[in-house]
Simulated scan of single mutants.
Amino acid sequence: MGTSNWQNVSYCIEMIRRIKPESILDVGVGFGRWGIICREFLDVWNGKVERGTWDTRIEGIEAFSANIDEYHKNFYTKIWEIDASDYFSSCKEKYNLIIFGDVLEHFYKDEGNKLLNMALEMSDYVMINIPLGENWEQGDLYGNKYEEHKSEWYVEDFEKYPIIRKRLFRDYIGREFATILLSKNSIISNQLLKQTQIDNEMHMIQQEMNEITEYYNLLKKKKTESEHTLETILTEGENKILNAAANEKVLIKVRIGNNINKNSNGNEVWIYHITSDEIPAIDLNKIKRDDKWITRMDQSAPTGTCLIASEIGAELQFEIVGETLKLKCLSHPWSGNIEIVKNDEVVLKVDLYSANQKKIDIIINLKGVD
């Protein structure tokens, strides 16, 4: 089922509660997040705990009928199993709030703009959650052709619309997305910002700014501490190898072999971490390698960097000390195989292919291998 980022959820809940919509249309139901949230914070939080007392009209549109499960029917008044463009073209209903929760990017841009224009005619408020810019590529998922991303959006694309709220967020890997609230009502005369609410709104924003500043300073301090710790770990390992006696060092080569798994879609090798029982981490940026390897920043790598190659024969090498060598690698449907070479002798061949993506540890007893 379709789902999306969580960093903006509390902000959206606050807006929905201030709007107090009596009728809502959730475009692209997916998992059902917005229908469930609206039901909870518009009915249950207002004392209407029993299902029979719920009176908010919450409708949804879902083109991929397999997404609709029994539990959806417990929260939505009605779900229209139809493409959003078809529904908007024929709809005569009026709503207080229409929600596009990570939906517009699944349409070509002209279609998305057409939907927004129709939504503004059909509803008092339109709330949009949207990924911004590049790096959000996505194709069909779980047999659902509607999951494909067909367009890129930027904040500037919404400036032609009557924006009354806008906030930028970043997801767990730093990509930018936005929550935008549109309404044809002016800010002063609409129900969201009555004059009696302005002071409270300003006070709340000031509190948020103070909290954000405090959190920013905390993160800045943690980042500095983390950088220092990582630098210490890498330098410590580097110096230990450098100062070790020649007979204590082992020269290791890792290369992509040609024994291709028949089920694999490629020869990719991803290395996330290299360590030993004496060396906590090797700096992957400093490893000697041919030009077939690339480095990539990756939050799931212990030192923040991983090495990637996909061409048979790609080779890297490094010196290590200790009795046990460990490589952390990615195993997935496009993985190839690697050969571990100790002092110019192949000591281990590993098929990295896996039908499901996972990280694996390759462990070698260096003292037990001649």
Rank of each mutant, 00 (worst) to 15 (best):
E105C: 08
T305G: 04
T56M: 07
I19T: 02
L307D: 02
I274R: 11
S90I: 14
F158I: 01
V126K: 01
K358S: 07
E70V: 13
N265E: 09
G28P: 01
S264A: 11
E137R: 08
E111A: 13
N258G: 08
E225H: 11
N113L: 14
H228T: 14
S10L: 02
K326R: 12
I198C: 07
F158P: 00
I212Y: 12
L168T: 01
C12T: 00
I340Y: 09
G112V: 00
Y71P: 01
A309D: 05
T295W: 15
L366Q: 06
A66F: 11
I82A: 05
I274D: 01
W293F: 15
L218S: 06
M209E: 10
K240Q: 10
T213E: 02
E50Y: 15
K48Y: 15
N67D: 02
K222N: 04
N263L: 14
D361F: 13
R18C: 02
D351M: 05
I241Q: 03
I212Q: 09
A178N: 00
V27P: 00
K221E: 04
N113R: 14
N337G: 03
Y95F: 15
I99Y: 12
A178F: 09
Y353I: 10
R17L: 08
R175I: 03
F41W: 12
H228E: 15
D283T: 00
R39W: 07
G322C: 05
N5H: 12
G28C: 08
L182W: 05
E339F: 13
N239H: 09
N135V: 03
I79V: 07
E50W: 12
T56R: 08
D26V: 15
E62Q: 09
S226F: 11
N129R: 14
G266Q: 04
K292M: 10
E214I: 03
K166C: 12
L230T: 04
K223R: 06
N263R: 08
I82H: 09
N356V: 03
I36W: 04
A246Y: 09
I19C: 02
T275S: 13
T275W: 06
L366R: 06
R17D: 05
D55V: 15
K222E: 06
A119N: 01
R255T: 00
Q299F: 15
I252A: 08
T213G: 01
T229K: 11
I188G: 08
N144C: 01
L42P: 05
I130Y: 13
K253D: 00
H228A: 07
Q357R: 10
F41I: 06
E111W: 12
I363W: 12
S4K: 14
G30C: 04
L251G: 02
P131D: 05
W153R: 08
N259Y: 10
K78E: 13
D26S: 09
M127L: 15
G47F: 12
A301C: 12
T179A: 06
T56F: 07
G313E: 11
